[in-house]
Write a protein that binds this DNA or RNA. Structure first.
Lengths: 139, 139
DNA sequence: ATCCTTATCGAGACTGTATCTCTTTAAGTT
DNA sequence: AACTTAAAGAGATACAGTCTCGATAAGGAT
């Protein structure tokens, strides 16, 4: 939630930045900053908490990563820039891509009582992932 | 995000509970716990922060209030129990009801790559309220 | 290769929302 | 009025995320 401006300063390719991106890809996928921090601290305990958050935020601001927001969970990051919806497991928090027939002109089907100008529509899916479903069925 | 069970203990009608609900209605509407706390502290500085959060959460758990979640803002509370979508102003945070033609069987139009069981679909609208729009146009 | 500028780092303080603990208070029944 | 216990109030705690600031290093210039 910082500036929306495209890079005005030139970014440097630091060791830490590479570590963060590699971890994000390795965790496959949609990891949160906290998940990446935890993962990295096992192999690189010297990496700083602020660094992980900073790298991810900067890259999202620069349009090199997609920041995913959820109502009940931390922000996640996606190496895919293609806009698509996501589903999150209410049990383990795993996030997966979702394809569905989006109503193409949803904005035009919206009306409210106070004259809002609709700018953004976000659809959040919540459910149970296959492995959590199996665990639930086993009980 | 506590228990989902319907009241197992009998609730008491306390002075504080009434104050919180009155404030929620007076603020008309969709206030957050923080907004209600701030409002109440002006007239009843003795009210505790935990009390406001507790009353709202308990009533939401009991199904007497609706808890609204947003990706970028605090939880809001709605005295209306009828399920409906909401739009939030990206500028001032005002929340308003929204009516739109919801795809009735959206769940059946969803597919994902990892076998999630879809349980819940939330649509969040974001935009600019009429008063913030006027302010923006004035500049 | 060395120097220089400055973006980035690491450590830890700080925010803000929300929850929890523990003691005290008071709602509602007997 | 007495009693039981839900709920209140104060303050500690949790936790994601941000900010500050001195130290470090990326990468272009010499």
């Amino acid at each position: 939630m910082t500036s929306e401006q495209p890079k005005t300063v030139k970014r440097r390719n630091t060791v830490q930045k590479k570590l963060v991106i590699d971890a994000l890809k390795r965790l496959n996928c949609h990891a949160s900053a906290g998940m990446i921090l935890k993962e990295l601290q096992e192999t690189h305990p010297e990496i700083g908490r602020a660094t992980v958050f900073r790298v991810l935020s900067a890259m999202a601001d620069d349009g090199e990563l997609q920041r995913l927001k959820f109502t009940d969970d931390d922000d996640r990051f996606d190496v895919s820039l293609h806009p698509h919806s996501h589903i999150i497991c209410r049990c383990c928090g795993k996030v997966d891509d979702v394809c569905f027939d989006q109503n193409p002109d949803l904005k035009n089907h919206v009306s409210d009582s106070a004259g809002f100008k609709v700018e953004e529509i976000t659809i959040e899916f919540k459910g149970l992932c296959s492995s959590c479903r199996e665990k639930a069925d086993a009980n």
